[in-house]
Design a binder for these strands. Structure first.
Length: 275
DNA sequence: TACTAACCTGTACG
DNA sequence: ACGTACAGGTTAG
């Protein structure tokens, strides 16, 4: 039951990671992490937190293994883990991710760090940390546009202001239940069901969150054609909610883990690029 | 309520 | 070189 860094980092959760000389380096809020597969058993405290070292994986894997599809995905990607990311970085990252590709998301986020994040040196290499909410909140439209955000400039700007002005309080959302936290995120311009679920799952400890994007829908329709509600061409708010309830009922309270295994599986099957 | 067009950028293909 | 196709979630109508 060892973490596999390649599987985990290349699973659509994080964007600001790079591999150098077989070591992964990544920005997480105001920290830089270095993760070496060869030394994965000697993580520091904040790294253990990031990699969710205290999750009871034996219990979780057993709990989500409802059928042979999930069982084989868990077996194939047994080193895949959910991460516990810096909430503000995760929030901005997935707002930026909407209607974009991994390569574009990554590029925009690096530009955001370069323009607004503090510089630091880590293991002899220079990094830009992720900007703090107040700094990003007073970025100009032109500066944000130059990060390649396009029409998402207003999404990022308003979202950063909401955090800077404490309309969004991540500590509160961490303690709140899934629905309360989700309703709060959905108030933000640029956050819909899918982005909200990503933020909840990857940074706010809501493991019953199950982000539904086009890939996961394709996977579910392929492997579970008769088990869940897929009628209609478009995924309306109502249908998203119904489908999510069915998924949690079937996969259980750790449904988010099953989502991650299905997502990794279908993206790999379709040879989609990662970091 | 259900559906659809518009939104921006980078990359791939011919 | 240049145009066209495409990926991708949210909002507004």
């Amino acid at each position: 039951m060892q973490i596999n860094l390649d599987q985990t980092i290349n699973s659509g959760q994080v964007f600001l990671w790079k591999k150098h000389d077989n070591i992964w380096y990544g920005v997480n809020g105001q920290n830089v992490f270095a993760a070496n597969q060869a030394k994965i058993d000697s993580l520091e405290k904040d790294e253990m937190d990031f990699f969710r070292k205290s999750d009871d994986l034996e219990k979780i894997f057993k709990d989500i293994s409802k059928d042979k599809t999930i069982k084989s995905a868990v077996k194939k990607f047994s080193g895949l883990r959910l991460l516990r990311q810096d909430p503000f970085q995760c929030y901005i990252s997935f707002i930026v991710s909407s209607n974009s590709s991994i390569q574009n998301i990554r590029s925009s986020l690096y530009h955001i760090c370069e323009k607004f994040g503090k510089k630091t040196t880590f293991h002899g290499t220079k990094f830009h940390l992720f900007p703090e909410p107040k700094r990003l909140a007073r970025a100009s439209n032109a500066e944000l546009l130059s990060c390649g955000l396009g029409y998402r400039v207003q999404f990022v700007k308003k979202a950063a202001i909401a955090v800077a002005e404490n309309e969004i309080d991540f500590n509160f959302l961490k303690k709140a239940d899934y629905q309360t936290a989700k309703d709060s995120l959905l108030e933000i311009f640029g956050i819909g069901n899918k982005v909200a679920d990503c933020i909840l799952l990857f940074s706010l400890d809501k493991l019953e969150s199950f982000p539904l994007d086009r890939w996961i829908l394709r996977s579910l329709q392929n492997y579970y054609p008769d088990k869940f509600s897929f009628e209609g061409k478009t995924l309306t708010d109502k249908k998203y909610q119904v489908l999510h309830s069915e998924l949690v009922e079937y996969f259980g309270k750790y449904a988010g883990y099953s989502q991650q295994f299905l997502f990794k599986t279908i993206r790999d099957e379709n040879q989609k690029k990662w970091l």
